[in-house]
Structures are given as structure tokens and as C-alpha cells.
Design a protein around this nucleic acid. Structure first.
Length: 565
RNA sequence: GCCCCCGUAGUUCAACGGAUAGAGCGACUGCCUUCUAAGCAGUAGGUUGAAGGUUCGAUUCCUUCCGGGGGCACCA
């Protein structure tokens, strides 16, 4: 916290006799700048002191010691407003960013508190659709955010590489599969087979039974099925890694469902010991009536396991292996009930850490008003979206900046940034209706807008081409926009913290839009590099630290910040 | 039927329980012989789904209702 705010809190602590923590909780930022930088609402004191809040505000003003010169204060109705000494304030904030550089906003509060993030988690033998991007980019951003706060973070890609769907695929592949077709484009072909299975199964109901039987055999380790499964898994994983490469994403573990299938014995044993299971309709379940939840299925009547069983095993394995502080599941809202059941069962098993398992849910990605679903074949390939976006950037560069160096690299960074930002710029739980004309609009609130602002900041530094110093005349940068910018810069660490607490990358996205907006207004209204060397030097310090924060913020979203575009 | 999420400008979205609810897009209007116009500024656009309640104060919290979406036994 900046020392000026600390001083105000101390003064309020003395004048109100409230605890420092209480003052800090009540102290707020006024909605309009003419009302000052901080405001203390006197309503709560009004009751205890039996006086109207506006009278209290005046009394507090009279009691406040402003001899330090750090701030002035005035009553405005029921509020005591504080006005910081602008140049002093700008100095403290800018110097802090300047000293900390890319570590500004970083923290050590997360040290030793491991966070597991389960995200992306696509299904094997299916192409990577745009629907999966939401989990991927939210998870990736949370990884970057928690890392910044000092947490050890484990990125887990919980591959959907097990389950009845592979029974379906095995049936379909044996029935209709042609090796030469498979070779051409394995993943797409497997996906075709999968959708064909669903079409044919509508009229041929025995197919579903066959699929269940094949999966059961696979689970029992039958040779041919295992061999085929391995083949499908490997080819898909390579395909996914190619996509992650494009996005610049890596994982620490690809331990998917199949991996945990071999670890379910412990789960069954613990459930047994705690006498939690019962047989219902031939299946093994944990009854959760008491908690107003439907029964949690552990084993099907044919003895095969379920997704839920494997998730229980995964949770326990992760706890044992990583001793996590929090275990996050970045998975769509549709699976909310599933996680409620899993976490409740873990709790009933006596695992107090069940409360540290968190379902970071998010709404649907829709395209042309329809929910995207690999099962129905309504799918928009991520790669197609990225390709289109990058192509559009190429065209814009050709038109606006044909002499740009490294065109292709920039086109990739901006094209991908546009798509990623579109997915991170809204609150998680809202459904996202994918519209080409919105995702590929690079004006206004968009990734390219932020990147463009960043490039501008870099361009200024190139033009200035002298070292930036923090020893400047801060009187020269105490104007309106400069002050607004500084305030936003001060908010960055708090913003990162909020984003982490709420598992909401969008909070950072929103913040960056504001930061870029204020900077662009400033840029428009105030000429930065002028004959006045003292003023230029001071303004360049502001430019420099703004660029650092914008770049760091973009990095936290997993978006590259090119220096030219 | 039960449970969860969402409902704010034409539209897409913001707004630690605080003072006059803000942006982008779209529409209209200005600003490039000066640091990147992927920019900036202006105009128009609102009964925050409805009604109650808690509070000094509610878009925010609680209750009920309405509308949209999702989930609810052998899929994941």
C-alpha cells in the first residue's frame, strides 16, 4: 500500500477511534475525481455517536492533522474526503513500479501454497473445438495469475481419454473404419466415425450396448482394444500439443482419466471402510439424500467405472502427490452437479481438504445461437478461428503498416491475442455467443486495442531513445490524465489479487481496457516528447511504467505484447 | 417437480453495499503536413425483468414471482 494512504488511515484511526483494519475496510474511492482520492463515509459512526453523518464529517476534518503536507481534507455531506498531494502521490507510485519493474504486482503471499489447476482437458479422438478454448484460456490465465502471486502451480490437463466413448469409437472403427482414410487425417476421421456412431445409434439401439461392452473389455485390459486405444490416444495428444504450441501453452501433467482408472481401488476401499456405498438398481452408489443431492454413481451394473469414480481417485491422488492448498477445476457449468457430488463424497470420506476443491465454472460457448457440442457435430474448430483471425491481421498490416518487420510473428501474436481476449473479457459464468464480427473486430474493447496501445508506448520510448530515470520533476506530471493513469497503476496489484480471489481473469482484462483508455486519451491530448526536456523526462517515466504494467497485464492473460504493430 | 447460473442502453458487456449506473459495438458528427487513426472527442440511447423486505443507503444482500439457459442413474 502506498504510504500516503497509510498515513490517511492512521489519521482516521486517531480521529474516529476505530481500529486500523476497520478504517481500511470502510475507506473507499469516490466516484468522481472532484471528490478527492479517498473518502471516509460517516454513516456507521452516526449511530454510535448519535449525530448526523454530515456533522461527524466536519468534526473529523477538524481533528485531522494535515501538517505533513501529504494530503488535504474536506467534508462533503456525510463523507470526509481526502485529496492527496498530486506530485507526491505520483512520485511514490511511479517510483515503486520503476523499482519493481516486471515484479510490480507480484507477491510472495502464495509461497508454499500449491495450486492445482485442471483445465483444457479435451477429449481424445475429437478435434479441438472453440468450445474448449474457454477452459483453456481461463485456466492458463489463472495459472499465470497465481504464479505471479508466488504460488507453486501445477497445470493438469485431465484428458478425456477413458470411458464409454471409447467403446463407441472401437465399435465404429471396427465396423466402418478404413485405414487409408484414417491415415489422411486421423483425428478428423475418428471424429467422423464418432458422429456416425451417434447417428446410427438412433435407429440401431444395440450399438450402445456393444459400445459399453467394448469399454468394459478395455477396462479389463483386453489386448486388441488396449492397443487401438493407445494408438488413438497418442495421435490425438500429438494433435493437441500442436495446438497448445500455437497458443503458447504447456502442461505439467497429462494424467487423464485413464491414468486414474488404475487408482480407483483406493477409492473403493475408503468408501467401503466408511460404509458409504450401497447397491441401488444394481449399481454401486453413495446415497446423498441427506444433502439434497441425487445419488453419486460409483460403479455401473456391469462393474465398469464412471467419470465420477475416476474424479474421486484424481482428487485423492492430487492431494497425496502435491499436497495442494487449492485444487481448481476449470470446467463448464453443466458439470456443476457432478462436482457437488464428488466434493461431498470426499467430505463424507473424512477428507477435510474437500473444501479446497473448487469448481471454477463457466457458461456455454455458443455459435450462431447454438450450443457447440462435439457429440452433435456442431463444432467450430479452434484452428479455423485462429487462422481466420491471423489472416485478417495480415491484411490490416498490409494496409496500415506495410513496412513492419516480422510481420508474420506480429500477425500471429495479434490474431491469437484477439481471440484469447474475446474469451477472457467477459465474466466466466456468462454464456458467450461467438460472433465472427465481434471476435474479429479489432477496434474498441479488444485484444489488438491493448496491444496497439502497448506498441504506442514502446514507440515513444524508441523515439525518445534515452535511458528512463525515476529522478524527475514530478510537478510536471501532476495533470489530470497523468494523475488518473497513476491511480490505475497503483491499482494493478490489487486487481491481480482480486482476479485470483475470484478466479476471474476478466477482472484483469477490464482493468487493462481502462488503463489503455486513459493512456490513449492522454496521448491524444498531451504531446509527450517536446523541447521541454524536464517535462519530457518526467512524462517518459510515466510512459515507461505504463508500458510495463500493460505488458505484465497482457502476459497474465496469456497474450503477447508486441513492441511494434 | 427439485437444484444451479444468467437477466443492466438497440446490442455485447462493466460497476469492493455508497455520492449523478459506465464502456465497446452499431447510428450520426468532428479530429491525421506534429510522438503508430487498430486512436481520440462529441451526440443519441436506461423504470438495472417485476414486486416486496433488510439498510442511513440496494444493480449489488434476502424472499416470492416472471423470462432465458443448464443439470437431475449407469455419458463425460
Amino acid at each position: 500500500m502506498n504510504p500516503l494512504k497509510t498515513e490517511i488511515i492512521k489519521q482516521l484511526h486517531l480521529s474516529t477511534a476505530l481500529s486500523v483494519a476497520e478504517v481500511e475496510r470502510l475507506l473507499e474511492v469516490p466516484p468522481r475525481e472532484e471528490l478527492g482520492d479517498y473518502a471516509f463515509p460517516c454513516f456507521t459512526l452516526s449511530k454510535a455517536w448519535r449525530k448526523p453523518p454530515n456533522v461527524i464529517a466536519q468534526e473529523l476534518v477538524a481533528k485531522t492533522d494535515t501538517t505533513s503536507g501529504a494530503f488535504s481534507t474536506a467534508a462533503a455531506g456525510p463523507y470526509q474526503n481526502f485529496y492527496l498531494s498530486k506530485s507526491k502521490y505520483v512520485e511514490t507510485v511511479l517510483k515503486e513500479v520503476f523499482i519493481k519493474q516486471h515484479d510490480y504486482g507480484s507477491n510472495t503471499s502464495g509461497q508454499g501454497k500449491t495450486i492445482i489447476i485442471d483445465y483444457s482437458s479435451p477429449n481424445i479422438a475429437k478435434p479441438f473445438g472453440i468450445g474448449h478454448l474457454r477452459s483453456t484460456v481461463i485456466g492458463q490465465s489463472l495459472y499465470l495469475i497465481f504464479k505471479k502471486l508466488g504460488h507453486p502451480v501445477v497445470r493438469v490437463n485431465h484428458l478425456g481419454d477413458w470411458g464409454t466413448q471409447f467403446g463407441k469409437l472401437l465399435v465404429a472403427y471396427r465396423k466402418w473404419g478404413k485405414e487409408e482414410e484414417y491415415q489422411k487425417n486421423p483425428v478428423n476421421y475418428l471424429y467422423e466415425l464418432y458422429t456416425r456412431f451417434h447417428q446410427e445409434a438412433e435407429s440401431a439401439t444395440q450399438l450402445e450396448d456393444q459400445a459399453r461392452e467394448e469399454f468394459r473389455k478395455l477396462e479389463l485390459g483386453e489386448k486388441e482394444n488396449t492397443k487401438l486405444w493407445r494408438k488413438f490416444r497418442e495421435i490425438s495428444l500429438n494433435e493437441f500439443k500442436r495446438i497448445y504450441d500455437i497458443l503458447g501453452i504447456e502442461f505439467d501433467s497429462y494424467a487423464g482419466e485413464a491414468f486414474y482408472d488404475s487408482k480407483i481401488e483406493v477409492v473403493l476401499k475408503e468408501l467401503e471402510e466408511n460404509k458409504l456405498t450401497e447397491v441401488s438398481q444394481e449399481a454401486l452408489v453413495v446415497n446423498l439424500d441427506k444433502f439434497n443431492l441425487p445419488p453419486c454413481l460409483i460403479k455401473k451394473k456391469d462393474e465398469a467405472t464412471l467419470y465420477t469414480t475416476r474424479d474421486l481417485a484424481a482428487a485423492m491422488y492430487r492431494r497425496q502427490t502435491y499436497d495442494f492448498h487449492k485444487s481448481l477445476y476449470v470446467v463448464g457449468s453443466a458439470q456443476q452437479l457432478h462436482f457437488q457430488q464428488v466434493f461431498k463424497v470426499l467430505e463424507l470420506m473424512g477428507h477435510a481438504w474437500a473444501k479446497d476443491c473448487i469448481h471454477v465454472d463457466f457458461g456455454w460457448v455458443k455459435f450462431e445461437e447454438q450450443i457447440l457440442s462435439t457429440r452433435s457435430g456442431h463444432i467450430l474448430l479452434l484452428e479455423d478461428v485462429l487462422r481466420r483471425s491471423i489472416q485478417l491481421v495480415r491484411e490490416i498490416i498490409a494496409e496500415k503498416n506495410p513496412d513492419l518487420e516480422e510481420k508474420e510473428k506480429v500477425a500471429n501474436q495479434v490474431g491469437i491475442g484477439a481471440v484469447v481476449f474475446a474469451f477472457l473479457s467477459r465474466r466466466r459464468q456468462k454464456d458467450f455467443d461467438f460472433k465472427w464480427e465481434e471476435v474479429l473486430n479489432f477496434e474498441g474493447e479488444s485484444g489488438p486495442y491493448l496491444q496497439y496501445s502497448h506498441a504506442r508506448l514502446c514507440s515513444l520510448q524508441r523515439k525518445y531513445s534515452r535511458p528512463i530515470s525515476s529522478e524527475v520533476d514530478f510537478q510536471k506530471i501532476a495533470g489530470r490524465e497523468e494523475y488518473q493513469l497513476t491511480k490505475l497503476l497503483e491499482n494493478f496489484p490489487e486487481t491481480v489479487k482480486n482476479a485470483a480471489e475470484q478466479y476471474e481473469p476478466h477482472i484483469i482484462a477490464n482493468y487493462l481496457l481502462k488503463l489503455a483508455g486513459v493512456f490513449n486519451t492522454y496521448y491524444q491530448n498531451v504531446r509527450i516528447i517536446t523541447e521541454d526536456e524536464t517535462a519530457t523526462k518526467a512524462k517518459m517515466l510515466l510512459v515507461y511504467v505504463t508500458q510495463i504494467v500493460l505488458r505484465e497485464g497482457l502476459n497474465l492473460l496469456g497474450i503477447k505484447a508486441p513492441e511494434k504493430m
